[in-house]
Nucleic acid binder design. Structure first.
Lengths: 347, 347
DNA sequence: TTGAAAGCGCTACCAC
DNA sequence: GTGGTAGCGCTTTCAA
């Protein structure tokens, strides 16, 4: 089923069919109708590959994410897609599962589709080689950790600030023994969150004791990490997690052990994904505005309605906001709000 | 950056470069090396569009899902992808958000990429027109509800059986007032789950009273639906949900109202997504084997290693398995295992 | 307003 | 082993 088939059936040239399909002006209503009828009758679907090959700008955007199973990335994807669709753009995604090899091959695959723009929404450190790519087409990097990408727009959430607010809040509540549950420590940006936590905790030293462990991403990883902390004998009164998913896992481990949250230990997440609100107890967390981020990404990739090139700023930061819910409270034994039952004290 | 550039730099023909890139045999190690060096030096990425246009079979599979935010669909996607990758296939997805229009445009988009096979993993009723497509390339339909698709492989989970086991289990526990929380009632397959519930409950009538409500998919939808039931004055001792996500939402509403689960009311989910285990209380649910389903889909789309066409059976059913966790128990007031506190009785 | 024809970058076939 | 080259299905000048 090709353009030519349609053209034949409508007794016009392929050029005309092409014009009709692309809504070009300068086609008589008559022929247009005839062509449309032929298209219908033949159940014709244009070959997008041929179209991109022949055509000019490829209304296609590419995005690579670290873990599409994490709703955080999914939300950003959906936000970008929501911007893209009305403008006639398609969005393709590739997933890396945090592996550098798949990062490389994902970029390759997407570039192979000759996209109009590339969004890197990954926690892995991006190889500097992509700066070359960035000089050829719009590239935006979300959360590149310390290393920003030359030639690209760098969007970053203020994790440090968010983490600061969390630790500060916990400290103000009276917590003096805290744990940090992270994952994939080698990854730049995640490492950064961990560092942020450590650095901030340091401010309060020596009054505050901390411990940091890492495991795989996800709820199971969170549970595992929590288990590690508890098995080590360290008894934090507050546990800060690198993201909400891990926090939910931590919650589970605590619950299984009969440790009450927030009665015995407070738990915090990060990101404020939908699940945070439905966890039990609902999670205190830092909101990262995924919708805004998605919009920023789109704007950095696609020229505004009239313009010819996207607005390029080198760097944009988005703020996080502390959301207090049910998973945090004063530590046990404090004057106000303390529960009666008191659990194992630190060894 | 094209094949020709590479060819020029390596002082060979484009044909040779193509051979090298596709790992064809019959190229001297010498030239191969030279070509590779040129590829590296130029940072060349093949144009996949041109490749599919020119080449034979497009190592590309397409899949459309109803709601990629539901981990159930995501798991299937990942399972198919896991099968596809080692065989050299790529997988593209499109999301419909349960809207028929987007179903149509999604199919169009995917077909436009000239995929080698199409998987429809949707809850919407598929327009019979796609049977035409199915005669041109391998198509598999997962969960087409009552309507199976001609020319296609139909994979279906035995929802009815799963729902049966759930209701039976609940009834054996002593429950006599039950509610069903569903969504998008008009959609065939989902309607079917609801019907299954109703039909099964009917078996136990008039001893069992039931009520069914529907809302949007997702945790918020579940909460909303639960609210509807409670506000109506009906006081079920057990609530069966169309999927785990909605069950988590229901759990939340119950918790907020101070209703204990499973002490006062039992709750069940469906699918057994990862979250089911991390809910509090952990969800009793019916496991739907997503991994198996993904494998079945792949096998129906891609010919086996040696063969030339996929094994085509018209229909395959997968069984569900009851997973009992913490969210179900005997209803309050029962002889054994009853809690002391007794909540509002049915009016 | 329409048609003819030149590619887009690649693969595959046929020579050498 | 390697090169030449005919398309794949489409968009886009350039003419008519």
């Amino acid at each position: 089923m090709t353009l030519e088939d349609v053209a034949k059936r409508a007794s016009v040239s392929t050029a005309t069919v092409s014009r009709v399909l692309n809504g070009a002006r300068g086609v008589s209503p008559n022929t247009r109708a005839r062509v449309m009828r032929a298209v219908e009758a033949l159940n014709y679907t244009p070959d997008l590959n041929a179209r991109s090959l022949a055509g000019g700008q490829p209304k296609l955007l590419g995005m690579v994410v670290s873990n599409i199973a994490n709703p955080f990335f999914l939300d950003i994807f959906r936000s970008v897609e929501a911007c893209a669709r009305p403008r006639g753009y398609d969005l393709i995604v590739a997933n890396t599962d945090y592996t550098p090899e798949r990062l490389a091959s994902s970029i390759e695959t997407i570039l192979g589709r000759r996209v109009a723009g590339l969004a890197l929404v990954v926690s892995e450190t991006v190889p500097p080689a992509v700066a070359t790519i960035a000089s050829a087409l719009p590239v935006v990097l979300y959360d590149g950790g310390a290393h920003r990408l030359k030639n690209a727009m760098n969007i970053r959430a203020n994790y440090r600030g968010g983490m600061h607010r969390i630790v500060e809040y916990l400290h103000a509540l009276g917590h003096r023994r805290m744990a940090f549950l992270g994952h994939h420590t080698r990854l730049g940006p995640l490492h950064e969150r961990r560092q942020a936590f450590l650095a901030i905790a340091e401010e309060y030293a020596p009054r505050v004791k901390v411990m940091a462990v890492a495991s795989a991403d996800g709820m199971s990883g969170g549970q595992e990490a929590m288990r590690q902390v508890l098995d080590s004998g360290f008894r934090p009164t507050a546990v800060a997690c690198v993201n909400d998913l891990m926090a939910v896992g931590a919650l589970r481990e605590l619950t299984v052990r009969g440790i009450s949250v927030p009665g015995d230990v407070s738990v915090t997440g990060f990101d404020n994904i939908g699940l945070a609100e439905f966890a039990r107890p609902a999670l205190t967390t830092a909101d990262v505005p995924r919708e805004t981020i998605g919009r920023l990404i789109f704007d950095a990739l696609v020229p505004p309605e009239g313009g010819d090139r996207p607005l390029t700023r080198a760097e944009v930061a988005v703020e996080t906001e502390l959301i207090v819910r049910e998973s945090t409270s004063q530590p046990p034994g404090n004057a106000r709000g303390s529960r009666t039952r008191r659990r194992t004290s630190a060894r």
